[in-house]
């Protein structure tokens, strides 16, 4: 069993958990993920490792489906049946010169750990974090502390630059040299934003989030086409060269279980209303 040390809603429907998982925390590097399972009936959910502190790891997730809604009902002191990790290859950290980290929505949570390691490797680090509106912006203080420069964007202009992270990224690329870019967020955001770096020939990484089962290279559920070749995101990634990724295929494969996911979420919502016990009741 793995204890949740703290559980906090840091923005509307976005939750931050610190989980006690020594074998993950002691070995985790930037860019890696873990897989957790809430209970005996749970599915295996991959989440990027967002920070590490001693024997605890931080994950951030948005409550958007049955499992994440259920997870959101858990509180400090509750336990998870399983946590395994760190999984996947670490980010390619080295001295590039100037690096830019672009985070979109809940994907912002994946950026500070990479920023920290890039900074430690001697890079000048620029952060660009964007969300739909000011209320949904997460980890701003942490990114401000770790990055040399931080830009904020909101779709509605309620904070920072009015527009998308891609716009600020393009603006910066136009007037200075950036040697490596990480873009982490929803698939569509990664697709659009990485298209912005293509004309500049900048090395660009994206962290892919396809559907996984075991997360150790045994099932192929997470297969993605990168540079015309099939790769398993769980062991060959999750970070890949953005300009080689077949995003259309990724997004198609992310939708495989849309109908079932909807059914599961509806049933869970109904159940929560009826018994008032949230995720704790398993009748």
């Amino acid at each position: 069993m793995y204890t949740i040390n703290t559980a906090t809603e840091i923005a509307d429907k976005i939750f931050e958990f610190w989980i006690d998982a020594p074998q993950v925390a002691r070995n985790a590097r930037a860019g890696q993920f873990l897989i957790l399972r809430i209970d005996e009936k749970g599915e295996r959910v991959p989440l990027t490792i967002s920070a590490v502190d001693g024997d605890a790891v931080r994950v951030v997730f948005m409550a958007v489906g049955k499992t994440t809604e259920h997870l959101a009902t858990l509180q400090a002191g509750d336990t998870l049946a399983d946590v395994v990790g760190p999984l996947g290859k670490p980010s390619e950290i080295r001295e590039y010169g100037t690096c830019c980290l672009v985070g979109g929505g809940a994907g912002i949570a994946c950026t500070p750990i990479i920023a920290r390691e890039l900074k430690a490797a001697g890079n000048h680090v620029i952060g660009i974090i964007g969300s739909r509106n000011a209320d949904l912006l997460i980890l701003e203080d942490e990114m401000r502390e770790v990055c040399d420069e931080l830009f904020i964007t909101t779709d509605d202009g309620s904070k920072g630059f009015h527009g998308y992270a891609a716009d600020v990224l393009k603006r910066e690329l136009d007037h200075r040299t950036i040697d490596a870019v990480w873009i982490i967020g929803p698939a569509i955001m990664m697709k659009v934003t990485s298209a912005a770096t293509l004309p500049y020939g900048v090395k660009t990484f994206v962290s892919l989030n396809p559907i996984m089962v075991d997360g150790t290279g045994m099932c192929g559920s997470c297969r993605v086409t990168v540079g015309g070749e099939t790769k398993f995101a769980c062991v060959d990634g999750p970070e890949f060269d953005a300009h080689q990724v077949d995003f259309a295929e990724l997004m198609q494969r992310q939708r495989i279980y849309t109908d079932q996911e909807k059914l599961a979420a509806e049933k869970f919502a109904e159940h929560v209303c009826r018994c008032g016990e949230g995720g704790h009741c398993h009748e």
Binding site: K41, G42, E43, V213, Y257, K267
Partner: peptide, 15 residues
């Protein structure tokens, strides 16, 4: 392993 045949009682789906 994940008992998808019992979805949605178990959380993992299969087509």
């Amino acid at each position: 392993l994940m008992h998808a045949e019992k979805f949605p009682a178990f959380d993992t789906p299969v087509k």
